[in-house]
Amino acid sequence: MTEYKLVVVGAGGVGKSALTIQLIQNHFVDEYDPTIEDSYRKQVVIDGETCLLDILDTAGQEEYSAMRDQYMRTGEGFLCVFAINNTKSFEDIHHYREQIKRVKDSEDVPMVLVGNKCDLPSRTVDTKQAQDLARSYGIPFIETSAKTRQGVDDAFYTLVREIRKHKEKMSKDGKKKKKKSKTKCVIM
């Protein structure tokens, strides 16, 4: 069974824990209790493949930012979460993405942009803004509501699919490099 290491990042209060708990335990946590770091595991079937999701729910508070490099190193894919009623959390996505790329030393890291709290009427981040940002990053965008469960499975499952595509691409690139290195030079 394939294991996928997913990391949920975003500013404090955007609903990272609520999304994760909704996926794992099928219930909505409405009281806000700032996370330092929590880890969850769940076995699911995605596109006919049974897999184990190892999900790291991270601290959004700035005082825990020193811990970010460590979990970013171990993560295979990242859910970059903002709240649709919090423009600052949307603007912060850029910083999370840049930090992930720096730590992973790669421009090509599996990510999904997630606009959470889409059940709320007080939207300050337009869907088109988020779609445009995701398009500019070359990553999928999904709106979710941890409260109603809308888009929750889709967000995590899409990230797994992005990781699969990335692994497939990397193995193809690896095979191309191996083929090239088999060419021999004969000096007579």
Rank of each mutant, 00 (worst) to 15 (best):
V125N: 02
V125C: 06
V125W: 15
V125L: 04
D126M: 10
D126S: 11
D126F: 08
D126I: 05
D126T: 09
D126K: 06
D126V: 08
D126G: 11
D126Q: 06
D126A: 08
T127C: 12
T127M: 12
T127D: 12
T127I: 13
T127Q: 09
T127G: 11
T127S: 12
T127V: 12
T127L: 12
T127R: 05
T127A: 10
K128S: 14
K128R: 10
K128C: 12
K128L: 09
K128T: 13
K128D: 12
K128G: 12
K128N: 10
Q129S: 13
Q129G: 09
Q129Y: 14
Q129R: 11
A130Q: 06
A130R: 02
A130M: 15
A130H: 07
A130W: 15
A130K: 03
A130P: 02
A130I: 15
Q131M: 08
Q131G: 06
Q131I: 05
Q131F: 06
Q131A: 10
Q131C: 04
Q131N: 06
D132N: 08
D132H: 04
D132Q: 05
D132S: 07
D132E: 13
D132F: 02
D132K: 06
D132W: 02
D132M: 04
D132V: 03
L133C: 06
L133E: 06
L133W: 12
L133G: 03
L133M: 08
L133V: 09
L133I: 08
L133R: 06
A134D: 03
A134E: 02
A134H: 10
A134L: 03
A134W: 02
R135W: 03
R135Y: 06
R135M: 13
R135P: 01
R135S: 10
R135G: 11
S136F: 06
S136K: 09
S136C: 08
S136L: 09
S136N: 08
S136A: 05
Y137C: 08
Y137V: 14
Y137S: 11
Y137W: 15
Y137E: 14
Y137M: 14
Y137K: 05
Y137G: 06
G138R: 03
G138W: 00
I139S: 04
I139A: 05
I139G: 02
I139K: 01
I139Y: 03
I139L: 07
F141N: 01
F141W: 05
F141S: 01
I142H: 05
I142L: 08
E143D: 14
S145Y: 03
S145H: 04
S145F: 04
S145L: 01
S145E: 08
S145A: 04
S145T: 14
A146I: 00
R149A: 13
R149E: 14
R149L: 13
R149Y: 12
Q150I: 15
Q150T: 13
Q150R: 11
G151S: 07
G151R: 06
G151L: 07
V152D: 04
V152R: 04
V152H: 09
V152M: 14
V152W: 15
V152Y: 13
V152P: 04
D153H: 12
D153L: 12
D153N: 11
D153S: 13
D153G: 10
D153I: 13
D153K: 13
D153A: 13
D153V: 13
D153M: 13
D153Y: 09
D154C: 05
D154G: 05
D154K: 10
D154M: 07
D154W: 03
D154L: 08
D154S: 10
D154E: 13
D154F: 05
D154V: 05
D154N: 09
A155I: 08
A155N: 00
A155W: 01
A155S: 03
A155D: 00
A155L: 05
A155K: 00
A155V: 11
A155H: 01
A155C: 10
A155T: 01
A155Q: 01
F156W: 03
F156T: 02
F156A: 02
F156N: 00
F156H: 01
F156C: 05
F156I: 15
F156V: 12
F156E: 00
F156S: 01
Y157I: 15
Y157L: 12
Y157P: 04
Y157Q: 14
Y157T: 11
Y157G: 13
Y157R: 15
Y157N: 11
Y157D: 10
Y157V: 15
Y157K: 14
Y157M: 14
Y157A: 15
T158N: 08
T158G: 04
T158R: 02
T158A: 12
T158L: 08
L159G: 00
L159Y: 00
L159K: 00
L159A: 02
L159H: 00
V160T: 04
V160P: 00
V160A: 04
V160Q: 05
V160W: 02
V160F: 07
V160K: 08
V160G: 02
V160H: 03
V160R: 03
E162L: 04
E162H: 02
E162I: 01
E162Y: 01
E162Q: 07
E162V: 01
E162K: 05
E162C: 02
E162M: 08
E162N: 05
E162T: 03
R164L: 04
R164W: 07
R164G: 07
R164V: 11
R164C: 03
K165S: 03
K165V: 08
K165R: 08
H166S: 08
H166C: 07
H166V: 10
H166W: 08
H166D: 08
H166P: 01
H166Q: 05
H166T: 09
K167W: 02
K167D: 09
K167L: 01
K167G: 05
K167V: 03
K167P: 02
K167T: 05
K167A: 07
K167Y: 02
K167F: 02
K167H: 08
E168M: 06
E168R: 07
K169W: 07
K169V: 15
K169L: 09
K169R: 14
K169Y: 10
M170C: 11
K172M: 14
K172S: 14
K172Q: 04
D173I: 06
D173T: 05
G174E: 11
G174V: 07
K175F: 13
K175Q: 15
K176C: 11
K176T: 09
K176G: 15
K176V: 02
K177S: 11
K177A: 15
K178C: 10
K178I: 09
K178G: 14
K178H: 09
S181L: 09
S181A: 09
K182V: 01
K182F: 01
T183Q: 15
T183F: 00
V186S: 13
V186A: 06
V186G: 14
V186Q: 15
I187V: 14
M188F: 01
M188R: 15
M188T: 09
M188Q: 15
M188S: 13
M188V: 05
